[in-house]
Design a binder for these strands. Structure first.
Length: 283
DNA sequence: CTCCAGGGATGAT
DNA sequence: ATCATCCATGGA
């Protein structure tokens, strides 16, 4: 199959796909194999160009958020030492626009799991309950629709290594499939109302809700605080204080990192994980 | 407020 | 080959 091409300045495909925001893309030759919604896609980066197959250039631009004004966004980040390093390290990292349901479902599976596990769970769910599609001679599995997961069982899902998350995913799939939770209609809600609705779903707490808001609802101010980010916040911004509550950290993050705080969070997260700095507390 | 189940990969001994 | 470590949610 012949690849089509599109300009992609200020973009790092590999870093974007490996930064812990999406978990199903797999390295294939020069590029990556995956699905965008129901469509199988192959994409590879050659310098400032993306070569791809499977869907329209418009859909590629939209999914990889190539329309985000990255320079402007990065310019809003605070100019402290940690952010300066992260900004430099993460050049070309974009927060992509993920389909709502697969983002929500995947992050329900992410709780208490590390990136490697989440990738395995995502692959297992797709292989077992998704639809196989062909692209550039390879099989790609789409993420199963809510209705498909709603008619599985907890033990079916446990077989995909979900553990106790199986029940949460099943219950949420049923709410979404039956329209008790209409994810599409939540687009119109304010940030805080959207967060409340998401947190009502089984297996969704503040952290997962913020991930879904940031990665699927384009709420760039949503600031997920996981253990990595919490470590950074405590060590970079609260060095002197000994007792800092989660609430304090969340309130600080919400104001300090600005209108694109979620983007800043993603840069800090990826930079911290990649630079391998493990700061152990001696207490 | 604190404590802890939960489970599979990954890194250390 | 065992042992410790990583991790978010939800309920006690």
């Amino acid at each position: 199959m012949k690849l089509r091409e599109i300009a992609a300045p200020d973009f790092d495909l590999a870093m974007t796909l490996n930064s812990g925001q999406v978990f199903h893309w797999e390295k294939q030759g020069h590029g990556f194999l995956g699905a965008i919604g129901e469509t199988p896609v192959y994409v590879q980066q050659d310098g400032r160009t993306l070569n791809f197959a499977g869907l329209s250039a418009k859909a590629i631009v939209d999914y990889f958020a190539l329309d985000h004004p990255l320079d402007e966004i990065c310019a809003t980040f605070p100019k402290d030492a940690a952010m300066n390093s992260a900004r430099e390290f993460c050049r070309g990292l974009r927060i992509i626009r993920q389909p709502t349901w697969e983002c929500l479902a995947t992050f329900i599976c992410s709780s208490m799991k590390q990136v490697a596990h989440i990738r395995q769970i995502s692959a297992a769910l797709r292989r077992r309950f998704g639809t196989a599609k062909k692209i550039v001679g390879c099989n790609v599995f789409t993420f199963p629709a809510p209705a498909r997961l709603a008619r599985t069982s907890e033990s079916d899902l446990r077989a995909c290594a979900l553990g106790y998350r199986a029940r949460n995913l099943l219950m949420t799939a049923r709410q979404v499939a039956s329209d008790v939770a209409n994810l599409q209609s939540w687009n119109n809600l304010s940030d805080s109302d959207l967060r409340k609705r998401l947190c009502d779903l089984p297996g969704v707490g503040t952290k997962v809700a913020n991930c879904v808001m940031l990665f699927a609802y384009e709420r760039n101010s949503a600031f997920p605080i996981d253990v990595w980010i919490e470590r950074v916040l405590r060590e970079q911004y609260f060095t002197a204080e000994s007792r800092v509550t989660a609430k304090t950290l969340a309130e600080f993050a919400a104001t300090y990192f600005g209108a694109h705080g979620g983007y800043a969070q993603q840069y800090l997260f990826h930079y911290t994980r990649m630079s391998g700095q493990r700061m152990r507390e001696i207490s």
